[in-house]
Design a protein around this nucleic acid. Structure first.
Lengths: 107, 107
DNA sequence: TACAAAAGTAAATTATAGTTAACTTATATG
DNA sequence: CATATAAGTTAACTATAATTTACTTTTGTA
């Protein structure tokens, strides 16, 4: 009776999804898991988050299932609400590093 | 004749946009700039990238302008093509760290 | 400064993401 | 195991992102 990990505590339904390893390479699934993990960790109901952000339940479900056919704006709304953010990573393979009259450095 | 930074070299049009500071907090503008910077740095034409990814020019333009009303799938296509990726960051403020019968750690 | 090539814009159309409402399934707890 | 609550699904509809084509603007270079 415990294949993945479940926590029943104070509130009601608490089917805890663990935080994915954020050091791994990005993938839509990882993002989806991070969102669900954060939301459940904060003990927020899917419907409540959807209402708070005025996005529909089906859309939030799509996001938490890792569907990438979703507007970036909706994903950012959810992430911001839950205290998640992105960091952009460049592979720095094809680049002209500080060549010419560049003022600002990069990365 | 050089307010921002321009590089004219081998090919044709090379209005170099510098790589934004990726250590700063994420913003759609930062993402847009990183994409444009990478593309121009790799000396790729906007139209060619659009064609290679079978997305329309107007859509790529929207992406490079920081418009967030765009499908995540299209943004990911562009990023992957240019060697850019995301990293997910959690603020770790509201979380039940390794509480209960959790097997995997997180973050 | 004229020319060519890339970037960006506009309008009409098509494709599809998003919504709403009702329903089904899963999950916790009494 | 019955019940309540949250999660997830479905279908019809609406809103809007994406495409196409053509045009305008910008930018580098001869």
């Amino acid at each position: 009776m415990n294949q993945k990990s479940t926590k029943q505590t104070l509130g009601r339904v608490v089917k805890g999804t663990e935080m994915p390893d954020l050091t791994r390479d990005f993938s839509p699934e990882q993002l989806a898991k991070a969102i669900t993990a954060k939301r459940t960790g904060m003990k927020l109901k899917l419907v409540d988050v959807a209402e708070a952000l005025t996005i529909s339940k089906p859309t939030l479900v799509k996001i938490e299932k890792g569907d990438i056919n979703v507007k970036l704006s909706n994903i950012l709304k959810v992430m911001e609400y839950l205290g998640l953010t992105f960091s952009i990573i460049s592979d720095n393979l094809t680049q002209n590093h500080t060549e010419g009259t560049s003022d600002d450095e990069w990365y």
